[in-house]
C-alpha cells in the first residue's frame, strides 16, 4: 500500500493529525510507568484524547481524499518520510520532566491552532475543534500545574525540568517556520507564534526556568517529512502487526 495525498487541505491537516497521533503514542508509554497511580491514569486520559483527536482528523482527511483510505491506513501504512508530525512530539520520555515540558509546549501550541480552526470553512473541522479545545484546556491545566511543581519543587526537579526545557526548545523553532499551506489554512500565523511565546515565557518565568539562547537549528523542516531518529523506532513498534500480517483484519 502506497498512500498518496492529493488535496492541499488534507496535506495540511495531516500535520495536525500526525502530531496528535505521535504524541498520543509517546504518552501511552507512561501507562504502568507513571510516578504514582493517579498520575498514570491522568496520562492515559491525555493519551486517549490525543488518539481520539487523531482518529477524527484522519477521518476528515479521508473524506477530503474521497475515502481512498481509512484512518487506520494512514496510521499503519506510512513510513518515516510520509509522517508530518512536529519533531517536538516524537521526542522520548527521558524522564517525567520531558513528558511534562513536551506536553505543555504542545498544549499551548494546539490551543492556538484549534482556536483558529473554530472558524474554518470546513464545518467538520470547526465542529471537532469545539470539542477538542476542551480536552486541550484540561491537558494544558494539568501540564502547566506540573511545570510549576517541578520548577519550584526540589533542586532535583528544577534541574530536570531545566534540562528538559533546554533540550526540547530546540524543536520549537520549526513550529513557526510557516509555509504557504500554513498561511492558507490558519487565519493568523503570527498570532500563533506571539501567543505561544508570551504564554510559555510567562510560565517559564513563573516556574523559575531559564530560557537559554538557542542558536538557529539546521534540522530541516517537519513539513518535508524530516524527523529525529526516534520516529523510526516509534513507527516500527506501532505498525508492527499490520505490517507483519498484511492480509489480516484487526
Amino acid at each position: 500500500m502506497k498512500i498518496t495525498i492529493e488535496n492541499k487541505e488534507a496535506k495540511f491537516l495531516l500535520r495536525i493529525a500526525d502530531t496528535a497521533l505521535i504524541l498520543g503514542q509517546r504518552v501511552a508509554e507512561l501507562c504502568s510507568n507513571g510516578p504514582f497511580l493517579e498520575e498514570d491514569i491522568a496520562q492515559s486520559n491525555i493519551s486517549l484524547d490525543l488518539f481520539g483527536r487523531a482518529e477524527e482528523l484522519y477521518k476528515i482527511i479521508a473524506k477530503i481524499e474521497g475515502d481512498k483510505y481509512t484512518a487506520d491506513d494512514y496510521v499503519f501504512h506510512r513510513n518515516e518520510r510520509e509522517y508530518f508530525n512536529l519533531k517536538l512530539v516524537e521526542q522520548p520520555n527521558e524522564d517525567f520532566a520531558w513528558t511534562i515540558a513536551r506536553q505543555y509546549m504542545h498544549d499551548v501550541y494546539v490551543q492556538e491552532v484549534f482556536s483558529q480552526f473554530q472558524s474554518s470553512s470546513n464545518e467538520e473541522l470547526a465542529g471537532l475543534s469545539a470539542k477538542v479545545l476542551k480536552e486541550i484546556r484540561y491537558s494544558y491545566l494539568h501540564s502547566k500545574d506540573w511545570m510549576m511543581r517541578l520548577g519550584l519543587g526540589t533542586e532535583e526537579s528544577h534541574r530536570r525540568l531545566q534540562d528538559a526545557v533546554s533540550h526540547l526548545r530546540k524543536f520549537v523553532e520549526e513550529i513557526f517556520n510557516w509555509d504557504e499551506l500554513d498561511r492558507e489554512y490558519y487565519q493568523d500565523c503570527d498570532k500563533i507564534k506571539s501567543n505561544w511565546e508570551s504564554e510559555v515565557n510567562a510560565t517559564l518565568d513563573a516556574c523559575n526556568i531559564t530560557r537559554e539562547d538557542i542558536p538557529s537549528q539546521s534540522m530541516r523542516d517537519y513539513r518535508d517529512g524530516f524527523h529525529s531518529e526516534h520516529i523510526g523506532h516509534l513507527l516500527s513498534i506501532m505498525q508492527y502487526l499490520p505490517r507483519a500480517y498484511p492480509d489480516a483484519k484487526w
Binding site: 504514582f36 493517579e38 498520575e39 491514569i41 491522568a42 486520559n45 491545566l141 500545574d145 511543581r149
Partner: peptide, 19 residues
C-alpha cells in the same frame, strides 16, 4: 484519592471518578 495539593486533588478525582 491521594494527591499532594488541592489542584492535583480535583484533577485526580476527575480522572478517577468521572471518566
Amino acid at each position: 484519592v491521594h494527591a499532594y495539593d488541592k489542584k492535583m486533588a480535583v484533577q485526580n478525582a476527575r480522572d478517577l471518578y468521572t471518566r
